[in-house]
Design a binder for these strands. Structure first.
Lengths: 151, 151
DNA sequence: ATCGTAGTTGCAAGGAGTCGCAACTACGAT
DNA sequence: ATCGTAGTTGCGACTCCTTGCAACTACGAT
Protein backbone atom coordinates (compact mmCIF):
# COMPACT_ATOMS: atom_id res chain seq x y z
CA UNK A 1 0.00 0.00 0.00
CA UNK A 2 1.54 3.29 -1.06
CA UNK A 3 2.16 5.75 1.69
CA UNK A 4 1.48 8.82 -0.43
CA UNK A 5 -2.29 8.34 -0.68
CA UNK A 6 -3.14 9.07 2.95
CA UNK A 7 -0.76 12.03 2.89
CA UNK A 8 -2.47 13.47 -0.17
CA UNK A 9 -5.76 12.86 1.58
CA UNK A 10 -4.48 14.94 4.45
CA UNK A 11 -3.85 17.77 2.03
CA UNK A 12 -7.26 17.38 0.50
CA UNK A 13 -8.92 17.41 3.88
CA UNK A 14 -7.37 20.82 4.36
CA UNK A 15 -8.91 22.13 1.16
CA UNK A 16 -5.74 21.75 -0.86
CA UNK A 17 -5.47 20.21 -4.35
CA UNK A 18 -4.00 16.83 -5.18
CA UNK A 19 -2.09 17.87 -8.24
CA UNK A 20 0.21 15.56 -10.20
CA UNK A 21 3.15 17.66 -9.07
CA UNK A 22 2.29 17.25 -5.43
CA UNK A 23 1.62 13.57 -5.94
CA UNK A 24 5.00 12.86 -7.40
CA UNK A 25 6.75 14.93 -4.76
CA UNK A 26 5.00 13.13 -1.92
CA UNK A 27 5.79 9.81 -3.60
CA UNK A 28 9.48 10.64 -3.60
CA UNK A 29 9.38 11.64 0.02
CA UNK A 30 7.81 8.24 0.77
CA UNK A 31 10.33 6.30 -1.32
CA UNK A 32 13.37 8.10 -0.05
CA UNK A 33 13.20 8.12 3.71
CA UNK A 34 15.49 10.48 5.57
CA UNK A 35 16.36 14.06 4.88
CA UNK A 36 16.03 15.49 1.45
CA UNK A 37 16.97 18.93 0.20
CA UNK A 38 14.57 20.65 -2.15
CA UNK A 39 17.05 20.21 -4.96
CA UNK A 40 17.20 16.49 -4.42
CA UNK A 41 13.43 16.23 -4.29
CA UNK A 42 13.35 18.15 -7.55
CA UNK A 43 15.82 15.83 -9.23
CA UNK A 44 14.01 12.71 -8.05
CA UNK A 45 10.56 13.99 -8.93
CA UNK A 46 11.42 15.40 -12.32
CA UNK A 47 12.39 11.93 -13.50
CA UNK A 48 8.70 11.10 -13.25
CA UNK A 49 7.35 14.49 -14.26
CA UNK A 50 9.91 16.12 -16.57
CA UNK A 51 8.05 19.42 -16.92
CA UNK A 52 8.17 19.93 -13.16
CA UNK A 53 9.41 23.35 -12.16
CA UNK A 54 11.79 23.94 -9.24
CA UNK A 55 9.66 26.80 -7.93
CA UNK A 56 6.78 24.36 -7.62
CA UNK A 57 8.94 22.01 -5.62
CA UNK A 58 9.84 24.71 -3.13
CA UNK A 59 6.26 25.83 -2.86
CA UNK A 60 4.96 22.32 -2.52
CA UNK A 61 7.43 21.46 0.21
CA UNK A 62 6.39 24.58 2.06
CA UNK A 63 2.74 23.69 1.61
CA UNK A 64 3.44 20.20 2.95
CA UNK A 65 5.29 21.68 5.91
CA UNK A 66 2.44 24.06 6.69
CA UNK A 67 0.03 21.13 6.41
CA UNK A 68 2.22 19.24 8.89
CA UNK A 69 2.82 16.44 6.42
CA UNK A 70 6.52 17.24 6.31
CA UNK A 71 9.05 18.58 8.77
CA UNK A 72 11.40 21.25 7.51
CA UNK A 73 14.49 22.24 9.41
CA UNK A 74 17.58 24.28 8.85
CA UNK A 75 20.87 22.51 9.41
CA UNK A 76 23.73 24.35 11.08
CA UNK A 77 25.19 24.70 7.59
CA UNK A 78 22.23 26.79 6.59
CA UNK A 79 20.64 24.18 4.38
CA UNK A 80 16.93 23.47 4.60
CA UNK A 81 16.04 19.81 4.65
CA UNK A 82 12.72 18.02 4.62
CA UNK A 83 11.50 14.78 6.07
CA UNK A 84 8.15 13.07 6.33
CA UNK A 85 6.66 13.97 9.61
CA UNK A 86 6.50 11.23 12.20
CA UNK A 87 5.28 12.97 15.32
CA UNK A 88 5.18 9.80 17.37
CA UNK A 89 8.89 9.22 16.79
CA UNK A 90 10.67 12.20 18.21
CA UNK A 91 14.32 11.97 17.23
CA UNK A 92 17.32 14.07 16.46
CA UNK A 93 20.49 13.72 14.45
CA UNK A 94 24.18 13.89 15.11
CA UNK A 95 26.06 14.76 11.97
CA UNK A 96 29.82 14.75 11.67
CA UNK A 97 31.03 17.85 9.91
CA UNK A 98 34.22 16.12 8.83
CA UNK A 99 33.17 12.73 7.46
CA UNK A 100 29.47 13.44 6.94
CA UNK A 101 28.45 10.45 9.01
CA UNK A 102 25.10 10.69 10.71
CA UNK A 103 23.62 9.04 13.78
CA UNK A 104 20.25 9.11 15.44
CA UNK A 105 20.04 10.72 18.82
CA UNK A 106 16.99 9.37 20.63
CA UNK A 107 14.61 11.82 22.19
CA UNK A 108 15.14 11.72 25.96
CA UNK A 109 18.28 13.87 26.39
CA UNK A 110 16.78 16.69 24.36
CA UNK A 111 13.48 16.25 26.18
CA UNK A 112 15.31 16.84 29.42
CA UNK A 113 16.75 20.04 27.97
CA UNK A 114 13.30 21.09 26.90
CA UNK A 115 11.91 20.46 30.38
CA UNK A 116 14.68 22.50 31.94
CA UNK A 117 14.00 25.39 29.60
CA UNK A 118 10.26 25.25 30.17
CA UNK A 119 10.69 25.04 33.92
CA UNK A 120 13.37 27.71 34.31
CA UNK A 121 12.25 30.13 31.62
CA UNK A 122 8.65 29.33 30.77
CA UNK A 123 9.84 29.21 27.20
CA UNK A 124 8.60 26.53 24.84
CA UNK A 125 11.44 25.70 22.46
CA UNK A 126 10.98 24.08 19.09
CA UNK A 127 12.93 20.97 19.88
CA UNK A 128 11.13 18.33 17.86
CA UNK A 129 13.90 17.70 15.43
CA UNK A 130 17.44 18.81 15.99
CA UNK A 131 20.43 18.35 13.76
CA UNK A 132 23.57 18.79 15.77
CA UNK A 133 26.82 18.95 13.94
CA UNK A 134 30.09 18.13 15.60
CA UNK A 135 32.82 15.55 15.39
CA UNK A 136 32.18 11.85 15.58
CA UNK A 137 34.38 9.68 17.71
CA UNK A 138 36.45 8.53 14.75
CA UNK A 139 37.09 12.01 13.41
CA UNK A 140 37.70 13.34 16.89
CA UNK A 141 40.15 10.55 17.39
CA UNK A 142 38.28 7.90 19.31
CA UNK A 143 35.94 4.92 18.97
CA UNK A 144 32.69 4.60 16.99
CA UNK A 145 29.53 6.36 18.16
CA UNK A 146 27.19 3.99 19.91
CA UNK A 147 23.80 4.98 18.54
CA UNK A 148 22.25 3.68 15.36
CA UNK A 149 23.06 5.05 11.97
CA UNK A 150 20.54 7.57 10.80
CA UNK A 151 17.78 6.52 8.47
CA UNK B 1 40.79 51.41 24.84
CA UNK B 2 39.26 50.20 21.58
CA UNK B 3 38.50 46.53 21.40
CA UNK B 4 39.24 46.19 17.71
CA UNK B 5 43.02 46.56 17.99
CA UNK B 6 43.72 43.26 19.74
CA UNK B 7 41.31 41.52 17.40
CA UNK B 8 43.13 42.88 14.37
CA UNK B 9 46.35 41.79 16.02
CA UNK B 10 44.92 38.32 16.20
CA UNK B 11 44.36 38.39 12.47
CA UNK B 12 47.83 39.69 11.87
CA UNK B 13 49.36 37.00 14.05
CA UNK B 14 47.74 34.51 11.67
CA UNK B 15 49.41 36.08 8.65
CA UNK B 16 46.33 38.00 7.59
CA UNK B 17 46.22 41.67 6.56
CA UNK B 18 44.82 44.52 8.60
CA UNK B 19 43.03 46.30 5.80
CA UNK B 20 40.85 49.37 6.30
CA UNK B 21 37.83 47.26 5.36
CA UNK B 22 38.55 44.70 8.02
CA UNK B 23 39.29 47.41 10.54
CA UNK B 24 35.96 49.12 10.08
CA UNK B 25 34.09 45.83 10.15
CA UNK B 26 35.74 44.72 13.37
CA UNK B 27 35.06 48.17 14.87
CA UNK B 28 31.37 47.77 14.14
CA UNK B 29 31.31 44.35 15.69
CA UNK B 30 32.87 45.88 18.82
CA UNK B 31 30.47 48.81 18.93
CA UNK B 32 27.35 46.80 18.30
CA UNK B 33 27.36 43.89 20.68
CA UNK B 34 24.98 41.04 20.01
CA UNK B 35 24.07 39.31 16.81
CA UNK B 36 24.54 41.03 13.52
CA UNK B 37 23.62 39.85 10.08
CA UNK B 38 26.08 40.47 7.27
CA UNK B 39 23.73 43.02 5.80
CA UNK B 40 23.59 44.95 9.01
CA UNK B 41 27.38 44.89 9.36
CA UNK B 42 27.55 46.16 5.81
CA UNK B 43 25.19 49.03 6.49
CA UNK B 44 26.99 50.05 9.66
CA UNK B 45 30.46 49.78 8.19
CA UNK B 46 29.72 51.52 4.92
CA UNK B 47 28.84 54.69 6.82
CA UNK B 48 32.51 54.87 7.68
CA UNK B 49 33.88 53.44 4.44
CA UNK B 50 31.39 54.29 1.68
CA UNK B 51 33.23 52.37 -1.05
CA UNK B 52 32.95 49.18 0.94
CA UNK B 53 31.63 46.27 -1.09
CA UNK B 54 29.13 43.75 0.26
CA UNK B 55 31.16 40.83 -1.05
CA UNK B 56 34.05 42.03 1.07
CA UNK B 57 31.83 42.06 4.12
CA UNK B 58 30.79 38.47 3.60
CA UNK B 59 34.36 37.40 2.97
CA UNK B 60 35.70 39.32 5.92
CA UNK B 61 33.12 37.86 8.27
CA UNK B 62 34.06 34.40 7.04
CA UNK B 63 37.72 35.19 7.52
CA UNK B 64 37.01 36.41 11.05
CA UNK B 65 35.04 33.26 11.77
CA UNK B 66 37.83 31.05 10.49
CA UNK B 67 40.30 33.03 12.59
CA UNK B 68 38.02 32.42 15.59
CA UNK B 69 37.54 36.13 16.16
CA UNK B 70 33.84 35.84 15.42
CA UNK B 71 31.21 33.19 15.94
CA UNK B 72 28.90 32.53 13.04
CA UNK B 73 25.73 30.54 13.45
CA UNK B 74 22.66 29.75 11.46
CA UNK B 75 19.37 30.55 13.11
CA UNK B 76 16.47 28.15 12.69
CA UNK B 77 15.12 30.63 10.17
CA UNK B 78 18.12 29.98 7.98
CA UNK B 79 19.77 33.35 8.60
CA UNK B 80 23.46 33.53 9.37
CA UNK B 81 24.36 35.82 12.23
CA UNK B 82 27.71 36.86 13.64
CA UNK B 83 28.90 37.78 17.08
CA UNK B 84 32.24 38.57 18.62
CA UNK B 85 33.60 35.39 20.05
CA UNK B 86 33.68 35.17 23.79
CA UNK B 87 34.74 31.63 24.51
CA UNK B 88 34.81 32.12 28.25
CA UNK B 89 31.14 33.08 28.27
CA UNK B 90 29.29 30.11 26.89
CA UNK B 91 25.69 31.10 26.36
CA UNK B 92 22.71 30.41 24.21
CA UNK B 93 19.59 32.22 23.11
CA UNK B 94 15.90 31.64 23.31
CA UNK B 95 14.12 33.55 20.59
CA UNK B 96 10.36 33.84 20.31
CA UNK B 97 9.22 33.22 16.76
CA UNK B 98 6.06 35.18 17.32
CA UNK B 99 7.11 38.40 19.07
CA UNK B 100 10.82 38.28 18.29
CA UNK B 101 11.75 38.59 21.94
CA UNK B 102 15.05 37.09 22.91
CA UNK B 103 16.42 35.75 26.19
CA UNK B 104 19.75 34.39 27.26
CA UNK B 105 19.87 30.76 28.22
CA UNK B 106 22.84 30.20 30.49
CA UNK B 107 25.23 27.38 29.68
CA UNK B 108 24.58 24.55 32.16
CA UNK B 109 21.45 22.91 30.68
CA UNK B 110 23.05 22.64 27.27
CA UNK B 111 26.28 21.48 28.87
CA UNK B 112 24.35 18.63 30.44
CA UNK B 113 23.01 17.73 26.99
CA UNK B 114 26.52 17.84 25.60
CA UNK B 115 27.79 15.54 28.35
CA UNK B 116 25.00 13.08 27.70
CA UNK B 117 25.78 13.02 23.99
CA UNK B 118 29.51 12.62 24.58
CA UNK B 119 28.98 9.87 27.13
CA UNK B 120 26.35 7.91 25.23
CA UNK B 121 27.56 8.42 21.69
CA UNK B 122 31.19 9.53 21.85
CA UNK B 123 30.08 12.38 19.63
CA UNK B 124 31.37 15.88 20.25
CA UNK B 125 28.55 18.26 19.28
CA UNK B 126 29.08 21.91 18.39
CA UNK B 127 27.08 23.32 21.24
CA UNK B 128 28.90 26.53 22.00
CA UNK B 129 26.19 28.82 20.83
CA UNK B 130 22.64 27.72 20.25
CA UNK B 131 19.72 29.78 19.10
CA UNK B 132 16.52 27.99 19.96
CA UNK B 133 13.32 29.36 18.60
CA UNK B 134 10.01 28.65 20.22
CA UNK B 135 7.25 30.49 21.96
CA UNK B 136 7.85 32.70 24.94
CA UNK B 137 5.55 32.48 27.93
CA UNK B 138 3.57 35.52 26.87
CA UNK B 139 3.02 34.34 23.31
CA UNK B 140 2.32 30.81 24.48
CA UNK B 141 -0.21 32.25 26.90
CA UNK B 142 1.57 32.44 30.22
CA UNK B 143 3.89 34.58 32.38
CA UNK B 144 7.19 36.26 31.45
CA UNK B 145 10.34 34.19 30.91
CA UNK B 146 12.61 34.32 33.89
CA UNK B 147 16.05 34.66 32.31
CA UNK B 148 17.72 37.92 31.37
CA UNK B 149 17.00 39.68 28.13
CA UNK B 150 19.56 38.91 25.49
CA UNK B 151 22.42 41.28 24.84
C1' DA C 1 63.12 55.22 1.69
C1' DT C 2 61.84 51.62 -2.30
C1' DC C 3 60.45 47.13 -3.94
C1' DG C 4 58.27 42.62 -4.56
C1' DT C 5 54.67 39.78 -3.71
C1' DA C 6 51.07 37.46 -1.71
C1' DG C 7 46.91 38.80 0.48
C1' DT C 8 42.76 41.40 -0.50
C1' DT C 9 39.51 44.20 -2.84
C1' DG C 10 35.70 45.81 -6.11
C1' DC C 11 33.09 44.22 -9.65
C1' DA C 12 30.26 41.56 -12.52
C1' DA C 13 28.56 37.18 -13.30
C1' DG C 14 26.50 33.16 -11.36
C1' DG C 15 23.72 30.05 -8.22
C1' DA C 16 20.06 29.06 -4.94
C1' DG C 17 15.83 30.33 -3.50
C1' DT C 18 11.67 33.64 -3.84
C1' DC C 19 8.02 36.28 -5.92
C1' DG C 20 4.35 38.10 -9.06
C1' DC C 21 1.53 37.06 -12.84
C1' DA C 22 -0.94 34.97 -16.67
C1' DA C 23 -2.36 30.53 -17.86
C1' DC C 24 -3.88 26.22 -16.40
C1' DT C 25 -6.67 22.81 -13.90
C1' DA C 26 -8.67 20.10 -9.81
C1' DC C 27 -12.91 19.39 -8.34
C1' DG C 28 -17.50 20.42 -6.31
C1' DA C 29 -21.97 21.79 -8.01
C1' DT C 30 -25.21 20.97 -11.24
C1' DA D 1 -21.65 15.10 -18.69
C1' DT D 2 -20.43 20.52 -18.36
C1' DC D 3 -19.25 24.64 -15.88
C1' DG D 4 -17.22 28.03 -12.72
C1' DT D 5 -13.76 29.24 -9.84
C1' DA D 6 -10.29 29.22 -6.63
C1' DG D 7 -6.11 26.71 -6.07
C1' DT D 8 -1.85 25.87 -8.52
C1' DT D 9 1.56 25.92 -12.00
C1' DG D 10 5.47 27.42 -15.18
C1' DC D 11 8.05 31.18 -16.14
C1' DG D 12 10.92 35.03 -15.92
C1' DA D 13 12.47 38.54 -13.04
C1' DC D 14 14.28 39.49 -8.62
C1' DT D 15 17.05 39.10 -4.15
C1' DC D 16 20.61 37.40 -1.33
C1' DC D 17 24.85 35.36 -1.15
C1' DT D 18 29.02 33.42 -3.59
C1' DT D 19 32.72 33.14 -6.91
C1' DG D 20 36.45 34.20 -10.24
C1' DC D 21 39.43 37.64 -11.89
C1' DA D 22 42.05 41.81 -12.69
C1' DA D 23 43.61 45.53 -10.05
C1' DC D 24 45.14 47.13 -5.80
C1' DT D 25 47.87 47.31 -1.54
C1' DA D 26 49.70 45.80 3.22
C1' DC D 27 53.86 44.96 4.81
C1' DG D 28 58.30 42.53 5.37
C1' DA D 29 62.87 42.76 3.33
C1' DT D 30 66.27 45.63 1.98
Amino acid sequence: MSCHLPLLATLHAQGLRRTPQRTVIVEQLCHNRGHLTAERVFRLASRHLPALNIATVYRTLETLRAAQVVTAFVTPDGLTEYELRRPEVRHHHLRCRRCGGEWVLPGPPVERLRSQIVNAHQFHPDLDHLVLTGLCAKCAGGATPRSTQAG
